[in-house]
Amino acid sequence: MSKFPSSKPEEYASSSTSETKESNGTLQMDGPEDTIAAVARFIEKLHSRITSPPEKELVTACLLRLAKARKETRTVIGSYAQAMPLFISILRSGTSEAKVNDAATLSALCKDDGLRVKVLLGGCIPPLLSLLKSKSIEARKAAAEAIYEVSSGSVSDDQFGIKICHRRDKDNYWRATLEAGGADIIVDLLSSDNAAAQSNAASLLARLMLAFGDSIPKVIDSGAVQALLQLVDQNNDISVRASAADALEALSLNSTKAKKAIVDAGGVPILIGAMVAPSKECMQGEFG
């Protein structure tokens, strides 16, 4: 059984490599060689069958702090072929704390475009969607942030989406998302009492539909139309309204069924009101 040296990530990291330092709440290394050595040790710990669940919690916490520290460190983590399969394994069967650390690490890795593609194609979405069902608020928050980061990029000019479109795994990725109940879970987040979660969910829904048109019938059946129309209401946060409008645009862009669903839900006057309201606000600000 692995020795369990400390309950604090920084102390555990120090016991794993003598060159580790803590600065401003992040773990830092003296040089590139130290970073590579530390990451290698942590990956090896996660891979080892004798590493205990509590120790894996510390290892994932250390990797998270390293990933947040510097871009170079994220590159090192992403360079290990074992890293993504191990992260996915922890998301599926790790402790709650390890899953939270893991999801947050994936969010950090997704700050870099090249690593975002690796995270996406590594199969992270199904286990992250499962984590959204957790009873833990912290776990749900970490999962939602990771899903948002892995699909980040503007809806109108989605360079990330363009990259994925040229990959054979694109359809399999989005299909796996749908089969894991992704549409229903994302639509449920539209009813969250948190504006950021609502905005992120609407943006993710838009990207899902733009990247994988086969998702539109499931999105409609999940009740997304009514939920999105409610978010467009001018009483909501402006970022929520904008993301909901983008999602409705993506929904109706190439689907007659979606356009009919919006009309049947009374969406036309709501959308007209959403367009008129900003104009009134501008006029009041300019002449009032």
Rank of each mutant, 00 (worst) to 15 (best):
K163T: 06
K68P: 05
A242H: 14
P269M: 12
D171Y: 06
A103C: 05
G114I: 11
T105F: 06
L121I: 06
Q159P: 01
S134N: 06
A103P: 06
P85N: 09
M283C: 11
L120D: 07
Q198K: 15
S16R: 14
R70K: 15
R92S: 00
A261E: 13
S130V: 00
G213L: 03
R168S: 13
L204R: 08
L271W: 02
G122W: 00
I262Y: 05
P269T: 14
E179I: 00
V150D: 11
A244M: 08
D246P: 03
K141E: 02
I50V: 13
N254Q: 01
P269F: 13
L27C: 05
K257D: 15
F287S: 02
S96Y: 04
A274S: 15
G31H: 04
W174N: 01
A146C: 13
I270T: 14
L231I: 07
E19Y: 01
N101I: 09
S154L: 05
K45I: 00
E145S: 14
T177G: 04
G267D: 06
D157H: 00
A265G: 08
Y80Q: 04
A108G: 12
S191M: 10
G123V: 00
E138I: 00
Y148F: 08
Q226M: 11
Q230A: 13
D34V: 00
D169S: 01
L253I: 06
R140K: 15
D264S: 15
V187K: 09
G123Y: 01
V225M: 08
S136Y: 09
A245Q: 02
I162V: 07
N172R: 03
I270A: 15
N172Y: 00
D34I: 01
N236T: 08
A108M: 12
